[in-house]
Structure formats: structure tokens, C-alpha cells
């Protein structure tokens, strides 16, 4: 199963689970709990984003495979290592990996320890799920932007390579070819990163991951209070007080030091007057 299959399967799973979860009456099987109306998560938006990503992924993968196959001299190339290396070099997933490093940093920050599914926290879990779906949708949209950029870079590179072939020129070495690809791709990526589209989709990922983190913290705070543990907000209060106290101590020390200097200077002035 490749990255996209896993992604799609996860999406379908969550869509099914989400639909069941939010079906009116599902919660009424739990005795003693009034089932409020939950906010409906935007699973349709997530599905649309996934579909767009599928489209971009299919186009990019086809081009990637064609490039790698062409550069090996055809499908009959004997060395599987060479094939693997070339496939890797022209793998659009690496671009997702590049941006995925950023995404992964956000995800690591957002995905804390899993919490037990307590029935009382239902409303908070609903918000959590909505935040999760929003993040996944934002990530899909951002990945689609990256794949579009990859396809553009690969197309530019292929055009240049074809033009060389038509002129009867070839790359002097595989390294030269790779360097040219890196140069081409870098130029496209740098341009894309400054585009409004890229900045907007990345900002959406940042916002969504922040919202998810806050939704998680809301659940954690609820549980902490329930079990009599200090919450993040309470700890923050303590840390704020500590920082302010340290600030005051520093200021007092400085005042004392200044007072000492003034006294010293005053003392020597008195001495001079006496001797004067």
C-alpha cells in the first residue's frame, strides 16, 4: 500500500466512522446522557481535497515513471538497482516528503498521546474530530499544490532533455543529469514557495494543526480537571508568576548594585572633600 492508498483508506475509514458517529440517535443508546446536536464535520470537503490529490498524484506518478523508464533506456534495462535509484530521484513523493517534513513537524506538535475514550468527553471529541478532518483536508490541498509544482518541474526537465536528444546531445553523466534536474526543480520550487497559492495552503495547514492541538488540549484539560490533576492553563499561570517574580528579583538586584555604586562614588567624593 503506498502513501496515497493509506491516506485514502484512512479517509474512508474516518468518513464511515464519522458518519456513524454523528448519526442522530446513535448516542441515545447510552443511558443517562442527553445527546446534543454536534457540529457536522466537513467530511465532504475532505473527500473533495482527497479527490484533487488523487488527480494530481496520478498525473505526477505517470510522468515520474515515464521519466525513470526513459532514462534507463527502456523497460528492459537489466539493473534493478539503477531502476530503483532513478525512480527515487524522479519520485514526486520526495516533494511531498520535503513539505511533509514541515507537515510532520506540525503533526508531531499536534498529535500528543492518545486519550481514553470517555463518554462524557463526547462534545470535545467531536470538536477534536472536526479539527483532525480539517487538518487532513488542508494537508491534502497543500500536497496537491506541491504535486502540481512537481509536474511542472518534471515537464520542464523532460522538454529540455528531449530538446537535447533532438540536437544529438546527451548528458555527460548521470550526475550531470541529476544536477540539471535538481537545478530545474529547485528553480520551480523556489518560485512556487513564494506564490500566494503555496503560502495560503501552508498557512491553512498551520492554522488547522494549531486548532487540532488546541482541541486536544481542551480534551486533556477536561480530563485533568476530572481526575484532579493540574491543567496546562494552571501550569502556565504558575510559570507566568515565576517569570514575573524572577523579573522582580533581577530588578531588585540591579537597584541594589546601582545603590552600591552610588554609595561608593559618594564615599570617595566625601573623602576627596575631606582631603581637599
Amino acid at each position: 500500500m503506498d502513501q496515497f492508498d493509506a491516506f485514502r483508506a484512512m479517509s474512508e475509514f474516518w468518513t464511515r466512522a464519522g458518519t456513524g458517529f454523528f448519526t442522530q440517535g446513535a448516542g441515545q443508546t447510552a443511558p443517562g446522557f442527553g445527546w446534543p446536536t454536534f457540529p457536522t464535520p466537513d467530511v465532504a470537503g475532505l473527500a473533495t481535497a482527497q479527490a484533487k490529490l488523487t488527480e494530481a498524484w496520478t498525473a505526477a506518478t505517470a510522468l515520474s515513471q515515464t521519466l525513470a523508464r526513459s532514462l534507463q533506456g527502456g523497460p528492459g534495462a537489466p539493473d534493478p538497482t539503477a531502476g530503483a535509484v532513478l525512480a527515487r530521484i524522479f519520485d514526486p513523493q520526495a516533494w511531498l516528503g520535503g513539505s511533509a517534513e514541515f507537515d510532520a513537524a506540525l503533526t508531531r506538535m499536534a498529535e500528543g498521546p492518545q486519550l481514553a475514550d470517555l463518554w462524557q468527553t463526547e462534545r470535545r471529541y467531536a470538536a477534536l474530530f472536526t479539527a483532525w478532518a480539517t487538518l487532513r483536508r488542508a494537508q491534502s490541498e497543500h500536497q496537491a499544490v506541491m504535486l502540481e509544482a512537481w509536474t511542472r518541474a518534471a515537464g520542464t526537465f523532460a522538454q529540455e532533455a528531449n530538446a537535447r536528444a533532438e540536437r544529438g546531445e546527451s548528458f555527460a553523466s548521470a550526475r550531470e543529469m541529476m544536477s540539471r534536474w535538481i537545478e530545474t526543480a529547485n528553480a520551480v520550487l523556489l518560485e512556487v514557495q513564494r506564490s500566494d497559492k503555496f503560502l495560503a495552503s501552508q498557512r491553512a495547514v498551520l492554522r488547522a494543526s494549531t486548532d487540532l492541538r488546541l482541541a486536544q488540549q481542551d480534551v486533556a484539560a477536561f480530563l485533568s480537571e476530572f481526575y484532579g490533576q493540574p491543567t496546562r492553563a494552571e501550569l502556565d499561570d504558575v510559570h507566568k508568576s515565576l517569570t514575573e517574580l524572577r523579573r522582580e528579583v533581577r530588578a531588585l538586584r540591579r537597584e541594589r548594585r546601582q545603590a552600591g555604586k552610588v554609595a561608593k562614588a559618594g564615599g570617595s567624593q566625601v573623602g576627596e572633600e575631606v582631603h581637599g
Binding site: 510522468l63 534507463q72 509536474t151
Partner: peptide, 25 residues
């Protein structure tokens, strides 16, 4: 989706010697 200037079909095979390429790999 893709740049309109990019090739729509498979890229043409490149004029690169497979043996040389494989040796480098």
C-alpha cells in the same frame, strides 16, 4: 493541473547511454 507547456504524453527516450548510466549507478 500540469503546466500547459509540459508534454502531455510520455517523454521521449533520452539520448543517454544505458551502459554509462548503469556504470555510474
Amino acid at each position: 493541473m500540469a503546466d500547459p507547456e509540459s508534454p502531455k504524453g510520455p517523454a521521449a527516450p533520452l539520448n543517454l547511454t544505458p551502459a554509462a548510466l548503469l556504470a555510474e549507478v
